[in-house]
Amino acid sequence: MAVNAAGGRDDGSGAETMRLAGATMIVGLSLACASWTIASQDIAAVLESSFVAKNQATMARLQQDAVQKVCSAPRGAPVDEAVLSELRQQRLDAVVLPADGVYLGDWQRGAAVAGNGRGLQSSDDPTKPNGGNCYACHQLSPDEVAYGNLGPSLTGYGARGQSEPMLAVHLDQALGYPCL
């Protein structure tokens, strides 16, 4: 349907009668809802009562970690920069670099993981490997046109180099901005 958010429309009287019938029904529904109250002011209780575990998608997934908590500030609300800065450092400190110094793995296998959008949904088979779902948000291979743009384009990212300073930049970009 095409509801006009900017304003109403004047119809013939027959349609107007039907409109009134519909409006009466909406008022009726509103009154029915007036006695309905939210189960709790606590968002956790609302989530608890609104979701049900299904297959591998358990209720535990609604529990936030420390980063998710600080990054869930509603629009306009200040993010706790001190906490964020500490979490950022924790994430960077937790990185374990490959002991053998080999940073480039099997890129063809990586490409297959990147292109697989399945995995971890309640509708996915948990016995099958999870994909990275990378194309949902990033452009990668120039051959894949169905890429999202919520994240930056990563096309040619590897060509930026494998030197230690570049690896440090990669790590910082991947982990240093937890609220992105």
Binding site: V3, N4, G7
Partner: peptide, 9 residues
């Protein structure tokens, strides 16, 4: 309801 609300704000 949607059909009846066509054009409504």
């Amino acid at each position: 309801l949607a059909a009846e609300s066509e054009g409504a704000t």
